[in-house]
Amino acid sequence: MRPDELPGKLAAIAEQGLIRRRRLVAAESGARVLVQGRALVNFSSNDYLGLSRHPDVIAAMAQGAREHGAGSGASHLVCGHSTAHHALEEELADFTGRERALLFSTGYMANMGVIASLCGRNERVYQDRLNHASLLDGAALAGARLIRYAHADAGDLRHRLAQDEAPGSLVVTDGVFSMDGDIAPLPDLAEAAAAAGAWLVVDDAHGFGVLGTGGRGSVSHHGLGQAAVPVLIGTLGKAFGTFGAFVAGSADLIEYLIQKSRTYIYTTALPPAVAEATRVSLRLLRDESWRRQRLGELIARFRAGAMQLGLHLMDSPTPIQPILLGDNDAALRAAEYLRDRGCLVSAIRPPTVPAGSARLRVTLTADHEPEQVDALLQALREFA
């Protein structure tokens, strides 16, 4: 693309109703935020357990900065791997029931690094059609042959695996799909991958903290362990309330990633203060089960109210509650209407979701009050 083509490209995006705008947001308290100076109830956050503003987590980050400094100063393999990082890795391994865990600076980097390390050029990677962009980009970075199976359809995956003369090297799926909120059929996917001699990689960014025993995620929700799901990826910027990501698995897997993952080797390590804060949020996530219970009650309250209104909800038992509208402009109008009534809800449009499936993406957190959920439902009633 030439420099003089940029204005036309931007105009084309705008004509399709796909222009994205950043909001200037300042946190206030609980589920309330200030957006360009206006107080709104935030129904767009992934801070599912409300831990990002927990006083113990904040205190741990402040103390970590005093002890370790504001940054790590180097990559993990140079001199940036601190005692805080190492302690968090050990605690995450224990939490997930895995032999070892490895910290990455972002979830995007974890997903790309894992797939590019475990899959060589022209090898096959089977991915759910609705997988997150970072998983798809991992296959591109590896130079792999990407084969996409029908969403959450283990039968289609088996069919595609059976068609190949050479067995596939990787089967990759989200644990909870970020735009639909549904849970992957992990037992069936694990069976299909094992029969083909393939790795099963699960990105459980939206499952950790919300699903499973003690918030251990979608793999725990299905009663699966390391043998069925050899590669488990999680992010720390959602239910954990901090920042970064990790991969958990066998000792050999983690050692191999340390040696081969370019997105781990060639980037600065997380600030140790973030690791210290995450250690506290992990303890809270594990021990304070009332947060998940409260979140579950709010999800049930919202779904019951939305169904009474006849809204087109998707099949989601998680905090992600999309309302399918279809048309891009309709989604933007609905988001604007809700904002005028004090509710911040994101309008999600292509290419984040397939064409014709624009939606409002409502997300609920343990910080919400029942009255705030009722106010959102009332605003949706008025808009409908």
Rank of each mutant, 00 (worst) to 15 (best):
P351M: 13
P7L: 11
L295S: 03
T267W: 05
A116G: 08
A355G: 07
S218R: 04
Q321M: 07
M179Y: 14
I265P: 00
A39R: 15
A31Q: 09
P230A: 09
Q259D: 13
R303Y: 02
G73W: 08
R303P: 10
A269D: 09
E297R: 15
A379P: 07
R160L: 15
E5D: 15
S357T: 12
A133G: 11
S117Q: 07
N111H: 02
G71E: 11
A110K: 08
G155F: 05
V35E: 15
A184E: 12
S117L: 08
H221V: 03
A59V: 01
S289C: 04
Y108K: 07
R124L: 12
L130N: 02
V176N: 07
G225C: 08
A227Y: 03
H206R: 02
L18C: 12
F43P: 00
V25A: 10
L364W: 06
D188V: 01
G225D: 14
A355W: 10
A193S: 12
E297F: 00
F383Y: 15
E297K: 13
M1T: 09
M314Q: 03
L118T: 06
A251Q: 10
R38N: 11
R160C: 05
G107N: 04
L295W: 06
G143N: 13
V362K: 01
N328T: 07
D174R: 01
G37P: 01
Q293P: 01
A198C: 05
Q293K: 14
P3L: 14
E90F: 00
E255T: 10
Q321F: 04
R53T: 11
L157R: 02
G326D: 05
E369Q: 13
E123C: 10
E369P: 00
